[in-house]
Each structure stands twice: as structure tokens, then as C-alpha cells.
Amino acid sequence: MDLEEVLGKVAELSREELHIVRKRAEEKTPARDHGQDFHDMQDRARRLDEYATHLRKLHDDTFQDGWRDKQ
């Protein structure tokens, strides 16, 4: 995958997870209520983390050593 594809997936999954979070907030769904929304949110979060890791690698490959601040 190239940078554009990965960024598109990150944006898409972020919007999907945010939609679920907002829906749960509107419905005032307690965190302990592990329904389908909760599992969908976990799935989006897991996939988002995978794409974020891929994005980090693409950035490292593009900008080479020393571009990231050491923290």
C-alpha cells in the first residue's frame, strides 16, 4: 500500500470509530454495555492501529533516519 491508500484507510476508520463513539454518547450507553457497537468500535480501533503502524513505517522509509523527535 502506498501513502495515499494508508492515509485514506486511517481517515475512513477514524470516521467510523468516531461515529460509533458519538452514537454511544448520544444514547448514553454505559461502557459496561458490551453490545455490537462496542465490538464494532474495538474492530475499528484494532484496524486503525494496524494502519497507523504501517503509516509510521512509510513515514520512516520516506524521511529516513533522524526525522522523528526522540521522546
Rank of each mutant, 00 (worst) to 15 (best):
I20N: 02
G66L: 14
R46G: 06
K9M: 13
A31I: 02
D40T: 00
V10Y: 09
D2C: 09
D69P: 15
D33T: 06
R24N: 13
R68M: 15
A25S: 10
A25M: 13
K57W: 02
M1N: 04
D65E: 15
E5Q: 11
H19V: 00
L3M: 15
D65M: 15
H34C: 02
R24C: 12
A25Y: 06
Q71G: 14
D43G: 00
V21G: 00
E12S: 10
D43I: 01
Q64P: 04
T53S: 09
E17V: 00
K57R: 10
S14I: 01
L55P: 08
W67P: 14
K23I: 01
Y51F: 11
E5G: 02
A25K: 15
D49P: 00
A25G: 07
R68C: 14
K70Q: 14
S14L: 02
D60K: 04
R15G: 10
Q36V: 03
H59A: 05
L58G: 04
R47Y: 10
G66W: 13
R15D: 07
D61Y: 09
D60V: 03
D33S: 03
Q42P: 01
H34M: 11
R68E: 15
K28R: 14
L58T: 04
M1K: 09
A31Y: 00
D33K: 11
T53I: 08
R56F: 07
L58W: 02
G35P: 03
Q64H: 15
R32V: 07
Q71T: 14
D49K: 03
W67M: 13
H34W: 05
E27T: 02
I20V: 14
Y51A: 01
R56Y: 05
L13Y: 01
Y51H: 08
A45N: 07
E4C: 06
R47N: 10
K23Y: 06
H59E: 03
G8D: 13
H39D: 08
R47T: 08
Q71C: 13
R46K: 12
T53E: 12
D33W: 09
R24Q: 12
D69R: 15
H39K: 11
G66N: 12
D2Q: 05
R56W: 07
T53G: 08
L3Q: 06
R15I: 05
H34Y: 11
L13K: 05
A52M: 12
P30S: 02
H39Y: 14
L55N: 10
Q64S: 15
A25Q: 12
Y51P: 00
G35S: 12
L48H: 01
E26V: 05
H34F: 06
R22M: 08
G35I: 03
A11L: 10
I20H: 01
T62N: 03
R44T: 10
G8N: 13
D61W: 12
E50L: 12
L48I: 00
M1Q: 12
R22A: 05
R15C: 04
F38Q: 00
D43R: 06
R68D: 13
E27R: 07
A52C: 11
R47Q: 14
H39T: 03
K9C: 10
D60M: 08
T62H: 14
A45S: 13
L18R: 10
R22K: 11
R44K: 15
E16K: 13
V6T: 10
D2M: 09
Q42H: 06
D69L: 15
D49G: 06
E12H: 04
H59C: 10
R22V: 11
E50H: 03
L13C: 04
P30N: 04
F63S: 09
